[in-house]
Design a protein around this nucleic acid. Structure first.
Lengths: 188, 188, 188, 188
DNA sequence: TATGAATGAGTCTTCATTCAT
DNA sequence: GATGAATGAAGACTCATTCAT
């Protein structure tokens, strides 16, 4: 039990802690606002650790964004599975989306990535791919155009949840999706 | 109405130039990235002028965001007028939106404001108000729920245009709106 | 008589003070060893002043080396004039050189520049030009080869003075130059 | 004389590799510019090895300079032997010097040491000793003054070779030495 | 009033050095 | 003993803000 200030060694964990802290902060204050000091404080590591593991702040940023991207892609994957299992009905999509939107960290990750994507070509391509993925799932059943419209609507739902405190009611999402997709299951 | 040298050293004009430059830069590089020097260079005024008219950089930021907000509100007003004149049909909305999305500066202003709104309560309230306004226009004809869904969809269109290079086809927007609003004018 | 910490404004003087301080320090500790802090302390200006006047430390270094170069070139010019007035005899050269070597700052400037020239192409070209200049002065009378040899010897004298505490006796320099140039004025 | 695995993990060899790498780097980038990391990379040893064998970077620097000094002293010794064998004639000295100057590493080592010697008393004493040695070899035949002048000239030749791309012609060196030493062998 | 020089706080980054493993 | 992770001191540089002119 050494009283030395030096922490135990576990590079992997440390690196992860730093990236996680950076990702959290990107979500909270924006990609441009993070600093080494901020990240170090959040990750509870000394300042030097942040530069030990990432040559530049930009490298760190990139790793953190990558983490957020993975977060989003896990959601995407989960949605794919859900829709495969339950069928890609408006009700199933709406149910999944309402749940997803209730999980703040997920939406915030998505929002952070999309926001950054506006100025970052690599992320922009990713964001487009997500859209394409979703469309690809829906298109066989609903056609390209309606599926695209649905994807656009889902983006709108995402942003709505970031600006408004009260979430959109599930039936609103479901009904709108049903309309957009040309399905027939309107409920109240 | 003094006809003396008024344009020369016109404080008002200078202030406006500074705010405009700041607004442009916010759109281009982000709220967090602007600096006094950047703004002064863009506005082609001496560095001191930026601190002469705004006590702090934050004040300047706020004024610039306000300008962007006004830009958006002009669009909103124009839309209100158009819909009042042409009727708030899906076709009219879609036509207006397609035109609006084609004007990069307008969408970018909106995007910049919305992005900032995520973390700025005052802007967030504004963004919500816009949504409410739009809904208020549509609700008498289409009901609260459908109108809300349409507003959400419009947000999605906005973001789509910021991430994708090719704009959504007008008929896609129109058809989706028709579906969402429960109108009957589907076209190809 | 304001008690403010702010100093009076005199950008020209300040810039000069900074460059001079940097030049002194380059001579004392080497081109690679100077820091903004060091220079600021020596010039008795706040740290920020060093970056106010020079965008990068390299810019400052360059300006300081330029000052040293000018110092050397003044010496060169003075020598040219002396030799023009007195004739380029070994005695005259030796007399001038002995005086020059006695002025520490002059020799140190030269030494600093030459040392840096080893790795800096621009300075290297300058150092070569000085050599060529000197040779050009002597060549008409003594021929290219002997003049070159004399220039080489003078470089040797310079370095000797930087390594040894006691200067070379004037008659040694004069006699060696006489021999090298093929003149006949050996003395004791 | 243990024949066990000795070359493996040979601490002596490792130490030497580190010192050699440091010496090379001092010649290439200057005494002030070397870092542990640089040296470790060049020597192809782990970072820790550089601090294992030398308590501080300064210790390492010193050892590296010592290596350069030895490099120079080998040259000196070789010259002594050559001049002892062939006679200390201008031709012999010039021949040796031309060869020496053609060996870049040798001159660079000397240049690095002399440059450092300006600010390092210990090295300065060494540099002076080299001069004294050379003078001592020549003095019996040519007298103190002429021998000193010759040594000074040789220093000039060294620096010339560090600043100029084309070496001094051998006959120039030989003739100048002949003149300086008062010998009679001028050639073309 | 208008300008830009002045200042120092705060940023990223590099590294000598220490020390756990 | 050998290795490289850990730490923080120090360096270059940027800029908001102040204020002399």
């Amino acid at each position: 039990m050494p009283d030395s200030a030096r922490r135990r060694r576990d590079p992997e964990a440390r690196r992860n802690a730093i990236v996680l802290a950076a990702a959290e902060l990107i979500v909270e204050v924006g990609v441009d606002a993070i600093t080494h000091r901020m990240v170090a404080a959040r990750a509870d590591v000394p300042l030097g650790a942040t530069t030990q593991y990432f040559d530049t702040l930009d490298d760190l940023r990139e790793a953190a964004l990558q983490l957020l991207v993975e977060h989003v892609e896990v959601q995407m994957q989960r949605m794919r599975e859900t829709l495969a299992a339950e069928g890609a009905t408006p009700a199933a999509i709406a149910r999944f989306l309402s749940a997803a939107v209730a999980d703040a960290s997920g939406v915030e990750a998505d929002r952070a990535v999309v926001t950054t994507a506006v100025r970052d070509p690599k992320l922009r391509e990713l964001a487009r791919a997500w859209s394409r993925d979703l469309i690809a799932i829906l298109a066989p059943e609903y056609g390209e155009e309606r599926s695209t419209a649905a994807a656009v609507f889902l983006d709108g739902v995402l942003w709505h949840s970031q600006i408004n405190d009260v979430p959109l009611p599930g039936h609103l999402i479901e009904n709108a999706l049903a309309d957009i997709l040309g399905a027939d299951s309107r409920t109240t």
